[in-house]
């Protein structure tokens, strides 16, 4: 059974780990890492570490990966990664170094164990179970390290709060600043500092697709949305002017009630 679980979980773990590294999108990396954590937990069960199996899933897939996902939500996930090398030859040298390290680890450390399976059974039973045995060690032999870790966790929580609560990077824009900015742009490029004209000021309807007409009868292009102009639903001044002239004449002759008067 142990061997079966190992040969299922170990290749899965390595495949998921490779997926984490090669995935183009960060979300896919995160999902792969989640899978690697769970299958690694399965490996822990075969090594008679049931407490670590539970802790692995709770801590890694439960909290650490959630933190990763929250960060992704905060900063957006659709960012392209630039693949240009900043340091020349870094990829090649890294690849060689990784291969060398792998060979070193496999050929030296992997042969260092001689014991077989099943040695932990009686140790686990000594205090009534794996979790109890770990607790005894944690609160007697390693009590000081445990306290030091508590201090570390406190410091980390404090550090995260200080880092995440940052001061404003840019000054907040005030109304006065905005006005000054607009006038500066007017002086530099001649951009209109006033508000854009509203649609339909001289038009016959209050539709947003109806452009405002300037005093000379031409269409004020910036009074309607660029999207609507692009779609071709905005009437041009050639279409509008005859209607307007006729209506104005009718108004003067008293045959048409003045708009808004009725």
């Amino acid at each position: 059974m142990t061997i079966f679980v190992f040969w299922v979980a170990a290749p899965l773990t390595i495949a998921m780990a490779v997926g984490t590294i090669v995935a183009r999108k960060v979300v896919h990396s995160a999902i792969c890492l989640c899978g690697a954590m769970v299958t690694l937990g399965l490996l822990y069960t075969t090594l008679e570490a049931p407490f670590l199996f539970v802790a692995q899933i709770l801590v890694y897939t439960g909290s650490i990966m959630m933190l990763f996902l929250f960060t992704m939500m905060l900063i957006g996930i659709d960012r392209r990664e630039s693949l240009t090398e900043i340091i020349r030859g870094q990829r090649v040298v890294s690849g060689i170094a990784i291969g060398a390290l792998l060979a070193l680890l496999v050929f030296t450390v992997a042969g260092a164990v001689s014991g077989g399976f099943g040695n932990l059974d009686e140790v686990n039973e000594r205090h009534g179970g794996n979790a109890q045995g770990l607790a005894v060690l944690l609160f007697t032999k390693y009590a000081f390290i445990f306290e030091a870790l508590a201090a570390l966790v406190f410091t980390a929580a404090l550090a995260a709060m200080v880092l995440a609560h940052s001061d404003q990077v840019r000054a907040q824009r005030s109304q006065r600043g905005l006005a000054a900015e607009k006038l500066q742009q007017y002086a530099a490029t001649g951009a209109n500092p006033a508000a854009a004209p509203g649609s339909g000021v001289y038009a016959r309807t209050n539709s947003i697709a109806h452009p405002a007409l300037l005093p000379d009868g031409s269409v004020a292009d910036n009074s309607v949305s660029a999207v609507l102009s692009e779609r071709g639903v905005v009437p041009s001044d050639v279409e509008l002017l005859p209607i307007l002239v006729a209506e104005t004449a009718a108004e003067i002759n008293g045959t048409l009630p003045i708009a808004g008067g009725a």
């Binding site: 190992f6 773990t13 780990a17 170094a97 990784i98 399976f117």
Partner: peptide
């Protein structure tokens, strides 16, 4: 034997290292 686990561990470590370096 247990060395299979150590090999898996070494491979995982190198994959993680590749992620950091590449």
């Amino acid at each position: 034997s247990l060395s299979a686990y150590l090999i898996v561990s070494a491979v995982l470590f190198c994959i993680g290292l590749a992620g950091v370096l590449l």
